[in-house]
Design a protein around this nucleic acid. Structure first.
Lengths: 140, 140
DNA sequence: ATGACTGCAAAGACTTTGCATCTTT
DNA sequence: AAAGATGCAAAGTCTTTGCAGTCAT
């Protein structure tokens, strides 16, 4: 039996926050964003709804950056850049792996590919400028 | 002043385990692997050495899969497939994003790109076969 | 009225860290 | 002897979960 989904004001607000930002927010970020207008919101509810949205394909995980999972309301294929210094996650709308690759993985290896993530790591312009010493390895 | 690195038997053993497997192991996996031969090994030491190897470019993180960070001793560019069902991480030696893309990200966006990760998600052959129902659900 | 949704706080899972001890050089 | 590396356990972070109360249908 399918679960009946009910309306919830907080769920709506949480999704609106995710859709209204390009920061690829963490659960904590969403929580703090909503706290002023929803003083009784609980962090657990944010987590529960994030799971809900992922199961429903409304939100995708961008991966874990510095210990926190980051989310994205844009579920159409696109790539990301993650700054090793400040942890910022940015969209790269134009950058996309060849469509052939996904098919190649399916046929060559026999995998049922659902989706594909292309992520670049490095330094964003601000961090490159401010922090020349930060040359070495990812914090990711 | 640079830190002086000293030899350590356990460090050597840890690296050998990572290099000797294609499972893209987690800290816990490495720990259990070594426990029989090194009964006094501590999990903290595994973590400390994983950080060390990453800082030295001997090991790279493949990302966090089901809450555990996974590592890879192959640091040359290659892609991965991650099974949503069993969590297996597999190498895709032949699959590689176009070299142009990395350059494009640098020039178009002004990022200092250090590296790039291409990861495919889906079901591995075993899981596709065993668990047909699994494809119905838009899973995490 | 039913069962979905939530707040709260406790529990869980993974990782980091402080300190005394042991090792390498 | 000096400084790095480790064991141990405590602490830290992030996330999940149980339960009782609230809300949507």
């Amino acid at each position: 039996m399918e679960r009946t989904v009910r309306y919830s004001k907080k769920r709506e607000a949480i999704l609106a926050v995710i859709r209204g930002t390009s920061t690829h927010p963490s659960a904590e970020w969403i929580y703090h964003q909503l706290r002023p207008t929803h003083p009784d919101l609980s962090l657990g509810t944010v987590y529960r709804n994030l799971t809900f949205f992922q199961e429903n394909g409304q939100v995708q995980s961008v991966g874990v950056v510095r210990g926190q999972e980051r989310f994205d309301a844009i579920v159409t294929p696109h790539s990301h850049f993650i700054c090793n210094c400040c942890g910022t996650v940015l969209d790269l709308p134009d950058i996309r792996p060849e469509a052939d690759l996904e098919r190649a993985v399916s046929t060559q290896y026999g995998f049922a590919v659902k989706r594909c993530e292309l992520t670049f790591y490095g330094l964003c312009p601000e961090c490159s400028y401010q922090n020349q010493n930060f040359k070495e390895e990812p914090l990711s």
